[in-house]
Each structure stands twice: as C-alpha cells, then as structure tokens.
C-alpha cells in the first residue's frame, strides 16, 4: 500500500517535527555542555591560561574513551543511565539523552581545536593588560575564534541530523524511522526520496547559513 499524503501527511510532518526537536535539543544542550568542556580543555592544557594536568588528562581520557564508540552501540550501552535520567529507555527523549552526551564530547573537541588555533599573542596581550582568565575567554578567545566556532557548530549540526536518523531504533520517531517504515519496508521509493530531499534541503540551508555567518565574522 502506497503512502497516502492526502490522508496521512500529518505523519510525515510529525516526523519532520520530531527530527527538528531531536536536533535542536541534542545540539542545544550538548553544544552548550561541549562549549564548557572545550573551554575547560583550552584553559587547563599544558601552557594554557590555568594549566591543570589532572583535570586536562581526565577530560581528555573521558572524551577519547567515548568518541570512537559507534553511536548505535553507545545508545545501547547508555541504556541504564538513560533509564535513570529520562525515566524510560524508549521514545524521543530516551534518544535525545545519549545524543546530547555524544554531541557534548564531539563539540568539546571541536571547540578546543578552534580555540587552540587562536593566535596565542592576543591572549598574551589581554593578560598583559591585567585581564582575568574568564574575561579573556569571554572577551578575547571566543570573539577572536568566532568564525571557526561557527563552522564547527555548523559541522556538528550536520552530524546531529545524521545521528537523529537512528532515533527509530529506540522508537524515537523522526525522519529516519519514517523513511524506513513507510518507504523501505513498503517498497515506496518515492517516500524515501522525499525524506532524502527534506534532509538535503535542511542540511544545505544550515550549511549555507553557517558559511555566511562565518564569513561575516571574518570580514573585518
């Protein structure tokens, strides 16, 4: 039976909505936590503003440990923790929790890399004027590294859209599940391709926006 858009268009729209919700929350929460972790890595690294070998190595280890785990296995492994935190191991929110965790680790690295590539001279200049570590982060490091940071988060957005397609495996819904159950399993290729089109348009627009913002941040 082919998918009837006239009758069931709502299901498709709901899938789009779920995907957007997953991406927004996972990227919002994970991205923010990652920003904090990335800044912490930048500050505590050897030769950083407040070198702290213990904290730096601990964070590094944590990130290096979790990052290589394939996301689908990570979801399974996080099951007990998800259950404890979210109260359920299935559904959209049960998917968002491990997704946000993974995004935290990934963005921590990306933020750290953007900040490390910063010219140390400007940090030194701010220090020579008496700026505190927190002030330097807020008023120098992040503004000066804004363009790479925007590109890093744009990249992350694409990665989270990619991740979100797996929500179906914990009955979390979204476009991935939609394409599988209404397209693939019913041999209704048009439905699958429509899903692909929606995702391509979404990713392309965000990538375009990110590039534009980064260019604006650089035009100075």
């Amino acid at each position: 039976m082919k998918f009837d858009f006239a009758a069931n268009g709502g299901i498709f729209l709901e899938a789009i909505g779920t995907t957007l919700y997953i991406v927004a929350v996972a990227l919002g929460v994970g991205g923010l936590v990652g920003l904090g972790l990335g800044v912490l890595l930048f500050v505590t690294r050897p030769g950083g503003l407040r070198p702290n070998a213990i904290l730096f190595n601990l964070l590094n280890l944590l990130i290096n440990f979790f990052r290589p785990i394939p996301f689908i296995i990570f979801i399974a492994a996080m099951g007990p923790l998800t259950l404890a935190v979210v109260g359920s191991s299935i559904g959209t929110n049960a998917f968002i929790f491990p997704a946000a965790l993974m995004v935290s680790f990934a963005s921590a690295r990306l933020v750290e890399q953007s900040l490390v590539s910063l010219d140390p001279g400007v940090v030194e200049a701010a220090r020579s004027m008496g700026a505190s570590t927190w002030t330097i982060i807020r008023t120098v490091a992040i503004p000066e590294a804004l363009a790479p940071l925007i590109l890093a988060y744009t990249f992350l957005f694409v990665a989270v859209v990619d991740m979100s397609a797996l929500a179906g495996i914990v009955a979390g819904g979204g476009l991935g599940a939609f394409a599988l159950s209404y397209g693939y399993q019913r041999f209704d290729w048009a439905v699958t391709w429509l899903t692909v089109a929606v995702i391509v348009v979404l990713v392309q627009s965000v990538q375009y926006l990110g590039n534009w913002l980064a260019r604006k941040a650089l035009r100075r």
């Binding site: 200049a125 220090r127 503004p143």
Partner: peptide
C-alpha cells in the same frame, strides 16, 4: 593583575584583536 595596567606592553606581531575595531582595541 592589579599591577599590570601600570605596565604597558607591545609586541613584534602587534597582537591586536582582529575581531574588534581600532577604537575598541584601544578601549579594551
């Protein structure tokens, strides 16, 4: 940190803040 405003410093690579205007650099 409290003493540093009484000791100015300039650098080989200038180390100006690229994201700020000249006036904002001086005002920093």
């Amino acid at each position: 940190r409290a003493v540093r405003p009484d000791i100015g410093m300039i650098f080989q690579q200038f180390n100006l803040f690229g994201s700020k205007t000249i006036a904002e650099n001086v005002a920093y």
